[in-house]
Write a protein that binds this DNA or RNA. Structure first.
Lengths: 361, 361
DNA sequence: CTGAAAGCGCTTACAG
DNA sequence: CTGAAAGCGCTTACAG
C-alpha cells in the first residue's frame, strides 16, 4: 500500500534525472519531457511511424525502456475509437475444443498487447445477432475470432463487418477470403478414415453425422462417402444417422445403428464425443471393441485416449489453428511481422490409428 | 458500410428532436443536451449517485433508454483509472475444470457490463509474478478471479492487493477473508467417499494424492484419512502415492499401487483425470472394475461418465462457484444487488455413486 | 441537488 | 522530420 500523495511525485517528475523514481506509471508526457520532444513524436514512435529521425527514435526508445513505459491501451483505445481487445465468439457443444482453441489463440496473441475476451453465445436465441453486435459496439473490439458453427453464419459476419470490426472465421471449408479464414482439410482426412475401414474389410459401416447447420457436418459426410466410393462401398440411408456432436446424441445414434439386423461392423462418428457414446452403447450390448465393432472418431480430444480401447480418430490441429487465427487478425495491426498473410492453405488434420479398429469377425 | 461524413451528423444532433437519428453512438453529451442538464448530472445518473432529483433521474433515464445509450467503458475506465475488465487467472492442469469455471464466471458477469479476460499462466516460471502484475497494471483490471492452485499463492495475492486490484480466490479451504474467497467442502465429502469404500467392505485401499503445493491435495488427503479412521481403517504409506492431477500421473500411480502384493481392492484418486489413468492400468492388467477393483474419482468432469463403468466420484459445484466468485467481485461495484456478500459458507460438493465401486471379491 | 473547469493518456487533423 | 491545438467520452475536485 505505497500510495504517496501526488505532489512529491510531481516534483520527482520535474527533476528529469529522478524520473525513474516515479511511483506512478510513466505516461507519454513523461517520455516526451525526458526526451525533449513533443508527445506527438513519442506517439509516432509508439505507432511505428516512418517519419521519425532514426536517432530520435533510438533516444525515445531507450527512455521508454528505462522507465518500463507501456502505452495505456485504454487511452489509446479512446483516441483510436477502437479497443485492443479481441473477442472469441463461440457456441460450441464441445468444451474441450473450445479450451484448446482458446489456448491456441492466446499463444498467437502473446506479447502483442491484445487481450482475449471470451464471449459464449446461443446461436439459436432470437436476439443472438443483436447481442453480439452490442458486444462489439460496447467494447469497440479490434477484432473477433469465430468458432464453428457460429463462424458459418454469413449474416453474422455481415453485421460484424458493418461495425468495422475485423474477424477471422475458423471452419472446415473455404467460406470467405483467405485473410478472413482458417480452415482444415476435414474432407480429405475423413475420406482417408473411410478407406481405412474398407481396407480392414468392413462393408457394413454406420455413419453418425454432425448436426445440420454445421459446415463440418457436410464436409465430413461428403469426405466419408467419397472415401467409401473410392473403394466401391455405399452407405445405405438406414446406416446414416444425425447426431448433435454431444455424448448423449452419440448414445442414441448408436442405439439406432446397433439395433439393426444385420448390425454394422464399424461406425464412424463425426466427433469424439459421439464416439464415446458409441462405446457406451457397445458395452451395454456386450459388444467388444474392436472385435465386434470398430469405431472411429474425430477431433482427438483427450477423451479419445481415456476410452478403452484407445480411439482411432482424426487429430484436428486445434492449437495451431487458433494460433493462426490470432496471427491473421494481428497481421493488419503491425503488431506482428507480416509473414504469409494471404494464404488459406488448410491446416492438415491427421488420421490417428489406435486400437478401436480391426478387421470384422 | 453506411459511413456518412460528419457534418450531416452534427446537424442532426443540433436539432434536438432528430437526435434518435444519430448514426454514431450517443455520448454523454448527447444525453446532457437532450435532457437540458450538464454532463456531470448525467454522469451522476450513470453512477447511481443519490444526489439527483428523482424527477431529473427519470427524465435522463428515459432519454438514455430511447437512444440506447450505453456509457463507453473505455472512456469511463480512463477517467476512473480502472477498467471494466475482470481477469481469470489460472494455471490448472485440468482443462475441463477451467472451461466450466469460466462458464460459471461468465454467468455471474452477465449483464453487468464487465467483460472477462482470460489469462493462463505458468506458476513455475520465474517471471510468473511479475508477468501477472504487468497484466493487471497494463489493463488496470477491476478485479481478478484466481483458480487453484494459483489461488493458494499468498505472495501473488499480496502483489494483487498492492495494485489496488480486487480479487476472489477459489479454493478448497478458508485461506482469506470471506469476501475474497469461494470454497467447497472437499474435506467433508472426501471423508464420505472413504466411509463408502469401507462400508462396502474394503480395507486395503490405495490413495492417489494431488500434487504437493495444491491446497486441495491436503484437504482431500486429510478428509480421506479421517473418513477411514472413523471406520477404524488406516492407509499404510506404501498405499499412498503422489499424483499430478493429470491422466499420465494417474497411470503411473496406478501402476505403482497395483503392482503391490497383495493388491489394494480399491483406489481413491484425487481427481477424475487420475481415476481415468487407473482405469487404463486396470484394463491393461486384465482387472475388472468394480469386480477386481473399485475406483473413486473427484470432480465429476464429463470424462467420469464416458468411462466404463461410469465412475463413482465427487461432484464439485464448479459452475456455481464460478458464478459466486463473479458476484462477489461485483458486489462492491454497485453492479449487483448486495445479497449475502460477506459469507464464506462452503459450496457443498456431492458424492455421486455410480458403477465403479462394489464390495471386494 | 446541480454545474463549469480541468484532467485521465492517448491520437487526429493541420501546419510548418 | 516535428509540434501546438483540439478532441476521444467520461470523471474528479471544487464551488455554489
Amino acid at each position: 500500500m505505497t500510495r504517496s500523495s501526488s505532489s512529491p511525485l510531481r516534483k520527482a517528475g520535474a527533476k528529469l534525472g529522478d524520473a525513474t523514481a516515479l511511483k506512478r506509471r510513466a505516461t507519454i508526457n513523461d517520455i516526451a519531457r525526458l526526451a525533449n520532444v513533443s508527445k506527438k513524436t513519442v506517439s509516432r514512435v509508439i505507432n511505428q511511424s516512418p517519419f521519425v529521425k532514426e536517432e530520435t527514435r533510438q533516444r525515445i526508445g531507450e527512455i521508454m525502456q528505462e522507465l518500463g513505459y507501456v502505452p495505456d491501451p485504454q487511452a489509446r483505445g479512446l483516441a483510436f475509437r477502437r479497443s485492443f481487445l479481441i473477442g472469441l465468439i463461440y457456441d460450441n457443444p464441445n468444451a474441450q475444443m473450445v479450451v484448446n482453441m482458446q489456448q491456441g489463440v492466446l499463444d498467437g496473441l502473446r506479447g502483442s498487447g491484445f487481450e482475449l475476451v471470451v464471449h459464449p453465445c446461443n446461436r439459436l436465441d432470437k436476439s443472438f445477432m443483436q447481442e453480439v453486435g452490442a458486444f462489439i459496439d460496447r467494447q469497440k473490439l479490434y477484432g473477433v475470432i469465430l468458432l464453428p458453427p457460429v463462424s458459418e453464419n454469413d449474416k453474422l459476419v455481415e453485421l460484424i463487418e458493418e461495425r468495422g470490426c475485423r474477424y477471422v472465421r475458423i471452419g472446415s471449408a473455404v467460406l470467405d477470403e483467405p485473410e478472413n479464414i482458417v480452415i482444415s482439410n476435414d474432407r480429405l482426412v475423413t475420406a482417408e478414415a473411410a478407406r481405412h475401414l474398407v481396407d480392414l474389410g468392413h462393408t457394413r459401416i454406420g455413419f453418425i453425422a454432425g448436426p445440420p447447420g454445421f459446415r463440418s457436418r457436410k464436409e465430413r459426410e461428403a469426405g466419408f462417402i467419397e472415401g467409401l466410393r473410392a473403394r466401391g462401398v455405399e452407405v445405405p440411408a438406414a446406416l446414416r444417422v444425425d447426431g448433435a456432436y454431444t455424448y448423449e446424441s452419440g448414445v442414441s445414434a448408436a442405439q439406432q445403428l446397433l439395433s439393426q439386423n444385420p448390425r454394422p461392423t464399424a461406425i464412424f462418428a463425426s466427433n469424439d464425443e459421439m464416439a464415446a457414446g458409441v462405446y457406451h452403447v457397445a458395452r451395454q450390448m456386450g459388444l467388444s471393441i474392436p472385435k465386434d465393432l470398430s469405431v472411429v472418431g474425430f477431433d482427438d480430444t483427450p477423451v479419445s485416449r481415456r476410452l478403452w480401447p484407445p480411439l482411432t480418430t482424426v487429430r484436428w490441429p486445434i492449437l495451431e489453428m487458433g494460433q493462426a487465427a490470432a496471427e491473421k487478425l494481428l497481421r493488419a495491426s503491425n503488431a506482428v511481422a507480416p509473414t504469409n498473410g494471404g494464404e488459406a492453405r488448410p491446416f492438415p488434420a491427421h488420421f490417428v490409428v489406435r486400437d478401436s479398429t480391426a478387421p470384422p469377425l
